[in-house]
Protein backbone atom coordinates (compact mmCIF):
# COMPACT_ATOMS: atom_id res chain seq x y z
CA UNK A 1 0.00 0.00 0.00
CA UNK A 2 1.42 3.35 -0.93
CA UNK A 3 1.91 6.04 1.70
CA UNK A 4 -0.65 8.82 1.62
CA UNK A 5 0.46 11.79 -0.38
CA UNK A 6 0.36 15.26 1.05
CA UNK A 7 -2.79 15.96 -0.94
CA UNK A 8 -4.67 13.00 0.54
CA UNK A 9 -3.85 13.65 4.20
CA UNK A 10 -7.11 14.76 5.83
CA UNK A 11 -5.57 17.58 7.83
CA UNK A 12 -3.74 19.13 4.90
CA UNK A 13 -5.12 22.48 3.90
CA UNK A 14 -7.48 22.49 6.86
CA UNK A 15 -4.87 23.74 9.29
CA UNK A 16 -5.15 26.80 7.08
CA UNK A 17 -8.92 26.78 7.64
CA UNK A 18 -8.42 26.69 11.41
CA UNK A 19 -5.96 29.56 11.23
CA UNK A 20 -8.36 31.55 9.03
CA UNK A 21 -11.27 31.02 11.44
CA UNK A 22 -9.09 32.06 14.38
CA UNK A 23 -7.90 35.20 12.62
CA UNK A 24 -11.49 36.12 11.70
CA UNK A 25 -12.55 35.59 15.33
CA UNK A 26 -9.73 37.86 16.58
CA UNK A 27 -10.63 40.48 13.97
CA UNK A 28 -14.32 40.39 14.97
CA UNK A 29 -13.37 40.85 18.65
CA UNK A 30 -11.06 43.73 17.78
CA UNK A 31 -13.64 45.46 15.56
CA UNK A 32 -16.27 45.08 18.31
CA UNK A 33 -14.09 46.83 20.89
CA UNK A 34 -13.09 49.47 18.32
CA UNK A 35 -16.73 50.23 17.46
CA UNK A 36 -17.64 50.66 21.15
CA UNK A 37 -14.68 52.99 21.67
CA UNK A 38 -15.70 54.99 18.60
CA UNK A 39 -19.27 55.12 19.88
CA UNK A 40 -18.11 56.43 23.25
CA UNK A 41 -15.69 59.08 22.00
CA UNK A 42 -16.65 60.04 18.45
CA UNK A 43 -19.06 62.74 17.32
CA UNK A 44 -22.60 61.65 16.41
CA UNK A 45 -21.76 61.58 12.67
CA UNK A 46 -18.49 59.70 13.21
CA UNK A 47 -20.32 57.25 15.42
CA UNK A 48 -23.07 56.68 12.88
CA UNK A 49 -20.83 56.12 9.85
CA UNK A 50 -17.93 54.39 11.62
CA UNK A 51 -19.89 52.12 13.95
CA UNK A 52 -22.40 51.18 11.27
CA UNK A 53 -19.72 50.36 8.70
CA UNK A 54 -17.76 48.30 11.24
CA UNK A 55 -20.91 46.35 12.14
CA UNK A 56 -21.73 45.65 8.48
CA UNK A 57 -18.13 44.57 7.89
CA UNK A 58 -18.31 42.25 10.90
CA UNK A 59 -21.57 40.83 9.63
CA UNK A 60 -20.10 40.05 6.20
CA UNK A 61 -17.01 38.43 7.77
CA UNK A 62 -19.29 36.24 9.87
CA UNK A 63 -21.39 35.31 6.83
CA UNK A 64 -18.35 34.53 4.67
CA UNK A 65 -16.20 32.62 7.14
CA UNK A 66 -18.26 31.33 10.08
CA UNK A 67 -21.42 30.59 8.09
CA UNK A 68 -19.20 29.42 5.25
CA UNK A 69 -21.10 31.20 2.47
CA UNK A 70 -17.83 32.33 0.89
CA UNK A 71 -17.60 29.04 -1.01
CA UNK A 72 -21.24 28.38 -1.91
CA UNK A 73 -23.29 29.69 -4.83
CA UNK A 74 -22.99 33.47 -5.03
CA UNK A 75 -26.72 34.06 -4.69
CA UNK A 76 -26.71 33.04 -0.99
CA UNK A 77 -23.86 35.35 -0.11
CA UNK A 78 -25.53 38.11 -2.15
CA UNK A 79 -28.78 37.64 -0.22
CA UNK A 80 -26.95 38.06 3.08
CA UNK A 81 -25.02 41.07 1.77
CA UNK A 82 -28.30 42.59 0.57
CA UNK A 83 -29.85 42.09 4.03
CA UNK A 84 -26.87 43.78 5.70
CA UNK A 85 -26.84 46.65 3.18
CA UNK A 86 -30.61 47.23 3.43
CA UNK A 87 -30.65 47.18 7.23
CA UNK A 88 -27.58 49.44 7.32
CA UNK A 89 -29.09 51.90 4.84
CA UNK A 90 -32.43 52.08 6.68
CA UNK A 91 -30.70 52.69 10.01
CA UNK A 92 -28.46 55.36 8.45
CA UNK A 93 -31.43 57.15 6.82
CA UNK A 94 -33.46 57.07 10.04
CA UNK A 95 -30.57 58.43 12.12
CA UNK A 96 -29.79 61.15 9.57
CA UNK A 97 -33.48 62.18 9.51
CA UNK A 98 -33.53 62.52 13.31
Amino acid sequence: MSAPTVATLPSQGLSGARLRLTLVWLLLMLLTVASVELGAHGTARQTLSGVLLLALLKGQFLVDHFMGLRRVHRVWRALMAAWLATVGALIAIAFLLA
Partner: peptide, 26 residues
Protein backbone atom coordinates in the same frame (compact mmCIF):
# COMPACT_ATOMS: atom_id res chain seq x y z
CA UNK B 1 -23.93 20.03 12.79
CA UNK B 2 -24.00 22.41 9.82
CA UNK B 3 -27.70 23.16 10.33
CA UNK B 4 -27.24 23.96 14.04
CA UNK B 5 -24.23 26.08 13.13
CA UNK B 6 -26.14 28.09 10.52
CA UNK B 7 -28.85 28.93 13.07
CA UNK B 8 -26.32 29.89 15.75
CA UNK B 9 -24.39 32.16 13.38
CA UNK B 10 -27.68 33.87 12.42
CA UNK B 11 -28.34 34.53 16.12
CA UNK B 12 -24.86 36.09 16.36
CA UNK B 13 -25.34 38.13 13.16
CA UNK B 14 -28.60 39.60 14.46
CA UNK B 15 -26.99 40.50 17.81
CA UNK B 16 -24.10 42.31 16.07
CA UNK B 17 -26.61 44.74 14.52
CA UNK B 18 -28.91 44.83 17.56
CA UNK B 19 -26.01 45.70 19.86
CA UNK B 20 -24.83 48.74 17.93
CA UNK B 21 -28.38 49.90 17.21
CA UNK B 22 -29.63 49.80 20.81
CA UNK B 23 -26.46 50.26 22.88
CA UNK B 24 -23.96 52.21 20.79
CA UNK B 25 -25.49 54.46 18.09
CA UNK B 26 -26.77 57.79 19.35
Amino acid sequence: VETAGAWWHMVDLVWIILFILVYVLR
